[in-house]
Amino acid sequence: MTPALPAPVHYSVPRRGIDGFCDAWHAIGGTSERITSLDERADPTPTADLVHATAAIAQTGSIVIDSSRNARAASLLPDRCAFVIDASTIVDTPGDVLRERARWWPGAMPSQIVFVTGPSRSADIEMTLTVGVHGPGRVHAIIIG
């Protein structure tokens, strides 16, 4: 028995496309740049590992990465991290990834998928926000195309 799919989630202020993604990503503390090809990158940040995104989500400013394309440690251990996003993989909502699993992972599931939504943060002490507690405190999105 397959239960009916729950209705999609709608948002008060829908964010769409590259601009929507950048708005959301900046709002949570990320930085970004747009280029047409990776070769064009004049100053590839040397200390930042490049992590290849599977998808990105405009509504929440999330970058979807998985363990089949990247070492898990690459987006976790450094102080800063740069994600490479193909503009054609930017979708509107988390549902566009979660409800379309086969589109993104047609074969076997990677052992780990992570939706990265901003820099590592904590507000555990006095509700004061501090970034880079364990994961990268600076996160950069490189959007190609």
Partner: peptide
């Protein structure tokens, strides 16, 4: 910030 979906141990073709 991190929504992790874990579907198994490291696969043979994965780095870590």
């Amino acid at each position: 910030v991190y929504t992790n979906i874990i579907s198994g141990p490291r696969r043979d073709d994965e780095l870590d």
